[in-house]
Each structure stands twice: as structure tokens, then as C-alpha cells.
Amino acid sequence: MATLVIAEHDNKTLKDATAKVVTAAGQVGGPVHILVAGQGCDAVAQAASKIAGVEKVLVADDALYAKMVAETMETLILSLADKYDAILAPATTNGKNYMPRVAAKLDVPQVSEILSVVSSDTFVRPIYAGNALATVQAPAGKKVITVRTTTFKPAGEGGSAAIEKVSAAADPGLSKFVGEELSKSERPELTSAKIIISGGRGMQSGENFHMLDAIADKLHAAVGASRAAVDAGFVPNDYQVGQTGKVVAPDLYIAVGISGAIQHLAGMKDSKVIAAINKDEEAPIFQVADYGLVADLFKAIPEMNEELTKLGYK
């Protein structure tokens, strides 16, 4: 049988996370199909059909799926589940929301946030905020899996999968989408940015985060934050990098005024290169940083901005 990947998208663009889950799905086995559930999501289906290694793209285009509300996603995925040995979704807030409902209804345990596929039924996943790694074997039967996308490379392009429409499943009529406040930013998203500059409690105010914006613009970086900075109200919750926020693995992570609590390290320690700026030379962040600068960030950040200009970054 086949493996089904649930696409992550916003009805306009297919998110990078989907191609990464396709990579994991290919390792689990069987032909890989993608389900695009949305409303007016043709462009997403087209993009999904181009991912290498995908055999078929199923599209459920209905107002019910416009915001991927969990209760409607559950009945849709269940209506298709019979044909699949394994169902995979990215461990985004969407995937985390609907997938356990699917697993419960199929009466199978879910394997959450896998980091790697050992074999078709065995996976490695983080526990204790990534301070330990568990290798778990799922029982015979259907596999329901969410994938931590930072550890899988996206499948390439070059596919030409058939696109097939599927009908909407019954509306459970339990919930409805009311509204959303999404952060608007011209910068790359945290989870797919190649460079991230994050601020911590040391930033002292939301105003001061603009100093990081200037550098982010020059480096085409995303701006993140520690939990302390979010809890203090400096920046919105979706900036948070850490075990309970976003888990990221960019090429370069610049931690500014971040002490390096376990919770934060769990969200960024897989970054290729870590640079840290902190005035406290004992800060735990320096134990994981490739490059550490002990300095007052209020001097260092403006200086960095100037130096970057000198180096030709605009």
C-alpha cells in the first residue's frame, strides 16, 4: 500500500515542510501520495505534483478545509485512510492539531515529531525537550506520524504526479474558524530561513528588537526570540524558538542577549553554526556556540550593523 503525506500550505503556496515530509515518507516506504486540503488551493496542488517521488496528489477543495480546522481534517483524512499504510504530517501547529485525532479514531498510537526513519516501522524521536532520543517501534497496522521537518532535506522538484479531486467528508459541525492575526513580515519564515538572528531577555524591550531587524534585512535573515523575550511581551508568540515554540536548524543562528536555557537550546541546537553575543561570559549559550562574543549587545549590534554595511551588505 501507499503512504499519504498531508500538505502544509496557506491555500496559495505550498510550504517547504511538505517536501521534507515527502522525504520522510519515501523512507517509510510505498508510493507517496499528497493530500492537499484547502479552499481555492489549485496552485498548491500544482506545486505538490512537481515534488520528485510523488505518485499522486489528492485535492479536497472545500470551504471546510480553508483553515485546516482539526475536526474537519479528521473526518477527511479518515475517509481516505483505508488505502494507506502510513499517514505523515509535518509537526507544525496544524499537523499537531489534527493528527492525534486521526490516530485515536484509527486506534493506533501516534509517533510524534520523528527525527529520522530507521525502518518502515522504527523511528527516532526526541523526548525531554531533546535531552534524550528514543528509538521506538510502532506496532503492526497503520502508522500515524508527525515529522520534525528540520532534520529532513526537502525532496527535489521534477515530479509530475497526477492530480485527483477527492470529495469533502461530512462536516462534524463542532467548530468553526473565527479569525486570525498573522504576523506580517517580508522576511523569510523562521522554520525555513537560512539565517536567524534571535533576541532574548537581554534586549530589554520590544523597541530594541528593531536593532535586530536592521541586521536581519541585511542578511536576509528571520528574527526569532527566546521564551523569556516573548513572555516579557517584547515580541509576539510566533517569534519563539525553543522546545515549546519553533524548532529551527538554519545555517547560522545568531543569539543576542540569550542566556541559553535548556528550553531554548532544544529549539536551535541543530543549527549548523551558532554565534552568541552576551555580556555574561558564564552564559550557557557559550557552551554550544561556535563563535562567542562577550559584549554589551547595545554596543555590539549597532557596530555589527555598521560593519555589515562596510562589507557591502545592504
Binding site: T93, L182, S183
Partner: peptide, 13 residues
């Protein structure tokens, strides 16, 4: 709800 891009409000029965 806290979601990846910000905040989302749902109404549940």
C-alpha cells in the same frame, strides 16, 4: 490559539 504564524481564534461547541 497560538499557531505558527501568529494567533487563530476558533469557536467550539
Amino acid at each position: 490559539r497560538e499557531i505558527d504564524g501568529g494567533l487563530q481564534t476558533v469557536e467550539v461547541k
